[in-house]
């Protein structure tokens, strides 16, 4: 009996040595040759979600531009935090990309100390689309404009309910920002995802809805959209004023892009940046995005880093005010 165990231990040791050798060979690569093998594109959300749809749209173009196969993989959990925690620990060799959502990557480390990554560790390659957040009320509501809503909320502090997706999320922050700018108090009710919040709103459980532009476009007939958080008039919803135009100096939205681990070679980032941004120029891609209720956005690495930094500064201020109260 003893000898068999010994044999097993021996075999294991052998495997160790073998493995160690296999690993040490060929770890450095000239960025000029990148990419020379398949690339993993990780989606930190469930399959079938909007991030997935976007990645699936990009996949064939990427494969063509980079000349390598791109494998989509899912790492859902914690509103994306599990996937991003994995990303920052990966080798910065350009073979592991991850979808990236703003403000998620800013708000998660700010709101929970045990988040496994820092915003700065996530190196953006590009931001390719934006989903402005809009504010809507029921079709037969007596509220007809953002001003009406603010007035009603002023008259009845804390009794106007608003549905949105998640706590310390894009929707929640938009809600807090509006509350702050308008000097009103409302009740935010978080749901776990955009679809459940739309459903609760359509079922009459809340008076107001904070929703992504894609959902607003989809349900445009069933609700009154008061305002939208884009910088300029949102193309798919031309009649809806921006929140800015309604007198509150804020924009609200979710930006989607792609990121690599910290320490990735700038040459690799540049290659990926070009590949991703070129997709937007492919015929039909922009129209498809508009039809789905998204706004195409073309923001490269440098601009994205700056954008994230400004956003972070802005959000920390809002969160401090909330938590200070």
């Amino acid at each position: 009996m003893k000898t068999k165990w010994l044999a097993l231990v021996f075999v294991l040791c052998g495997l160790f040595v073998l493995g160690a050798c296999a690993n040490s060979a060929g770890s450095t690569e000239d960025p000029e040759d990148y990419p020379s093998k398949k690339i993993t594109y990780s989606i930190p959300f469930d399959p079938g979600g909007q991030s997935d749809v976007e990645a699936r749209r990009q996949q064939p173009y990427l494969e063509e531009a980079l000349g390598q196969s791109v494998v989509i993989q899912y790492k859902p959990g914690g509103g994306g935090s599990v996937g991003w925690t994995e990303l920052v620990d990966k080798d910065p060799d350009g073979y592991f990309l991850s979808g990236m959502n703003i403000p998620h990557i800013i708000l998660q480390p700010l709101s929970n100390d045990d988040t496994g990554y820092e915003t700065e560790d996530i190196v953006p390659v590009a931001i390719v689309q934006a989903t402005p957040i809009g504010i809507a009320v029921s079709k037969d509501s007596d509220i007809n404009s953002l001003a009406d809503l603010v007035e009603k909320a002023k008259a009845n502090p804390g009794s106007v309910t608003a549905a949105g997706s998640g706590t310390y999320s894009g929707h929640h922050l938009a809600f807090l920002q509006l509350q702050d700018l308008a000097g009103v108090e409302m009740q935010y009710i978080p749901f776990d995802g955009a679809a459940p919040s739309v459903q609760a709103f359509l079922g009459g459980n809340t008076e107001v809805l904070f929703a992504n532009s894609s959902d607003l476009v989809k349900y445009a007939k069933d609700m009154k959209i008061l305002a939208i958080g884009s910088e300029e008039t949102f193309k798919p919803l031309p009649d809806v004023p921006t929140i800015k135009a309604e007198g509150y100096d804020m924009t609200a939205g979710i930006d989607r892009g792609v990121a690599v681990p910290p320490g990735t070679d700038p040459a690799i980032i540049a290659k990926l940046e070009k590949a991703f941004l070129d997709i937007l120029d492919e015929p039909g891609v922009m129209d498809e995005m508009y039809a789905e209720g998204f706004e195409p956005k073309k923001m490269g690495h440098d601009a994205a880093v700056e954008y994230i930094a400004t956003k972070k500064e802005q959000y920390s201020r809002i969160l401090e005010e909330v938590k200070g109260n």
Partner: peptide
Amino acid sequence: PLPPGIFFG
């Protein structure tokens, strides 16, 4: 994907 090890892919 299946779990990779430290020493082998």
